[in-house]
Deep mutational scan, measured.
Amino acid sequence: SEIVKHAEEALERGEFVRIEHNGRVIEIRNEEALEELRRWVEK
C-alpha cells in the first residue's frame, strides 16, 4: 500500500510519520509500529 511504503521510506531516513486513517491517528516511529500499520491497512 502507498501508506505503508511512505512510512517505510520515512523510517529508513530516520523520520517518523503520523498517519490519519478512518478517523484514527497512528504514529510510525519503529518497525513495531510499521507492522501495526500493515495489519491496520489490510483490514
Score class of each variant (00 low, 15 high):
residue 18 R to H: 11
residue 37 L to D: 00
residue 1 S to L: 13
residue 33 A to F: 05
residue 22 N to E: 12
residue 26 I to L: 09
residue 33 A to W: 05
residue 34 L to T: 00
residue 18 R to S: 14
residue 33 A to N: 13
residue 6 H to D: 06
residue 21 H to F: 15
residue 20 E to P: 01
residue 33 A to L: 09
residue 13 R to F: 04
residue 1 S to K: 13
residue 31 E to S: 12
residue 12 E to T: 12
residue 12 E to F: 11
residue 35 E to N: 11
residue 29 R to V: 13
residue 1 S to Y: 14
residue 15 E to A: 05
residue 34 L to W: 02
residue 13 R to A: 07
residue 19 I to R: 00
residue 43 K to T: 13
residue 20 E to L: 11
residue 25 V to E: 05
residue 24 R to P: 00
residue 18 R to N: 10
residue 35 E to K: 09
residue 32 E to Q: 12
residue 34 L to I: 07
residue 6 H to I: 15
residue 43 K to F: 13
residue 1 S to W: 15
residue 43 K to D: 13
residue 39 R to L: 08
residue 2 E to S: 12
residue 13 R to H: 07
residue 4 V to L: 14
residue 16 F to N: 12
residue 20 E to R: 06
residue 37 L to C: 05
residue 35 E to H: 07
residue 38 R to N: 02
residue 1 S to I: 12
residue 15 E to N: 06
residue 42 E to P: 02
residue 27 E to I: 14
residue 17 V to P: 14
residue 24 R to K: 12
residue 14 G to Y: 02
residue 8 E to F: 09
residue 14 G to Q: 04
residue 15 E to Y: 04
residue 42 E to L: 06
residue 28 I to D: 00
residue 35 E to S: 08
residue 8 E to I: 13
residue 16 F to V: 15
residue 30 N to G: 08
residue 6 H to M: 15
residue 43 K to N: 12
residue 25 V to N: 04
residue 39 R to T: 06
residue 22 N to W: 12
residue 2 E to P: 08
residue 1 S to T: 11
residue 33 A to S: 13
residue 16 F to T: 15
residue 23 G to D: 04
residue 29 R to Q: 08
residue 11 L to Q: 03
residue 23 G to A: 02
residue 31 E to R: 15
residue 12 E to H: 15
residue 30 N to H: 06
residue 13 R to I: 06
residue 28 I to S: 00
residue 20 E to Y: 10
residue 27 E to K: 04
residue 26 I to V: 07
residue 26 I to N: 00
residue 39 R to I: 09
residue 19 I to H: 02
residue 8 E to H: 09
residue 27 E to N: 06
residue 2 E to H: 11
residue 33 A to Q: 14
residue 26 I to C: 10
residue 6 H to T: 11
residue 39 R to A: 10
residue 13 R to W: 01
residue 18 R to W: 13
residue 39 R to G: 08
residue 17 V to T: 08
residue 25 V to Q: 05
residue 41 V to A: 07
residue 38 R to K: 12
residue 43 K to C: 14
residue 38 R to P: 02
residue 4 V to F: 08
residue 36 E to P: 00
residue 22 N to S: 08
residue 11 L to H: 03
residue 34 L to H: 00
residue 38 R to I: 08
residue 10 A to E: 02
residue 24 R to S: 08
residue 23 G to F: 03
residue 36 E to G: 06
residue 7 A to C: 10
residue 5 K to L: 07
residue 3 I to T: 06
residue 43 K to Q: 14
residue 3 I to V: 10
residue 30 N to V: 04
residue 36 E to S: 08
residue 2 E to A: 13
residue 8 E to K: 15
residue 29 R to A: 10
residue 31 E to T: 13
residue 42 E to N: 07
residue 25 V to D: 02
residue 14 G to T: 00
residue 17 V to W: 04
residue 22 N to H: 14
residue 14 G to A: 01
residue 9 E to I: 09
residue 30 N to M: 04
residue 26 I to M: 08
residue 22 N to Q: 10
residue 15 E to F: 04
residue 14 G to S: 01
residue 42 E to V: 06
residue 32 E to S: 09
residue 21 H to M: 15
residue 30 N to K: 02
residue 29 R to S: 10
residue 37 L to F: 08
residue 23 G to V: 00
residue 29 R to K: 11
residue 35 E to T: 07
residue 32 E to P: 04
residue 3 I to P: 03
residue 15 E to D: 14
residue 21 H to T: 07
residue 9 E to C: 11
residue 27 E to T: 09
residue 33 A to C: 15
residue 17 V to H: 06
residue 4 V to N: 01
residue 5 K to V: 05
residue 38 R to M: 07
residue 32 E to C: 12
residue 35 E to D: 12
residue 13 R to V: 04
residue 12 E to G: 15
residue 10 A to I: 05
residue 21 H to A: 08
residue 31 E to I: 14
residue 34 L to V: 06
residue 7 A to F: 05
residue 25 V to F: 10
residue 21 H to S: 06
residue 18 R to Q: 13
residue 18 R to G: 05
residue 7 A to S: 03
residue 3 I to E: 04
residue 29 R to G: 08
residue 24 R to M: 13
residue 33 A to T: 12
residue 9 E to T: 08
residue 5 K to F: 05
residue 38 R to E: 03
residue 14 G to R: 02
residue 27 E to D: 10
residue 15 E to R: 04
residue 15 E to I: 08
residue 24 R to I: 13
residue 34 L to M: 06
residue 7 A to V: 09
residue 42 E to R: 04
residue 24 R to V: 12
residue 9 E to M: 08
residue 24 R to A: 07
residue 33 A to V: 05
residue 10 A to R: 06
residue 26 I to D: 00
residue 42 E to S: 09
residue 43 K to A: 14
residue 37 L to A: 01
residue 37 L to H: 00
residue 9 E to Y: 02
residue 30 N to D: 13
residue 3 I to S: 05
residue 22 N to K: 11
residue 5 K to R: 13
residue 22 N to T: 04
residue 39 R to E: 09
residue 26 I to P: 00
residue 21 H to L: 15
residue 2 E to Y: 09
residue 43 K to G: 13
residue 32 E to R: 10
residue 6 H to Y: 15
residue 40 W to E: 06
residue 36 E to H: 09
residue 30 N to I: 04
residue 25 V to A: 05
residue 17 V to A: 07
residue 40 W to S: 05
residue 8 E to D: 03
residue 3 I to D: 03
residue 7 A to M: 04
residue 22 N to D: 12
residue 38 R to Q: 05
residue 14 G to I: 00
residue 4 V to H: 02
residue 41 V to K: 01
residue 30 N to W: 07
residue 5 K to Y: 04
residue 42 E to W: 03
residue 2 E to I: 11
residue 40 W to M: 10
residue 13 R to G: 05
residue 32 E to D: 11
residue 26 I to R: 02
residue 7 A to T: 03
residue 17 V to Y: 09
residue 23 G to Q: 02
residue 36 E to D: 09
residue 18 R to M: 10
residue 41 V to W: 08
residue 21 H to R: 06
residue 25 V to H: 06
residue 32 E to L: 09
residue 3 I to G: 03
residue 24 R to Q: 10
residue 30 N to P: 03
residue 38 R to A: 05
residue 17 V to N: 03
residue 40 W to Y: 07
residue 40 W to H: 07
residue 11 L to M: 07
residue 12 E to R: 15
residue 23 G to H: 06
residue 38 R to W: 02
residue 3 I to C: 14
residue 13 R to C: 12
residue 39 R to Y: 07
residue 18 R to F: 11
residue 10 A to P: 02
residue 11 L to V: 07
residue 25 V to S: 07
residue 26 I to F: 15
residue 41 V to T: 04
residue 31 E to A: 14
residue 2 E to Q: 13
residue 41 V to E: 03
residue 8 E to S: 12
residue 15 E to L: 02
residue 3 I to K: 12
residue 34 L to Y: 01
residue 2 E to C: 15
residue 22 N to Y: 11
residue 11 L to R: 03
residue 2 E to V: 11
residue 43 K to V: 13
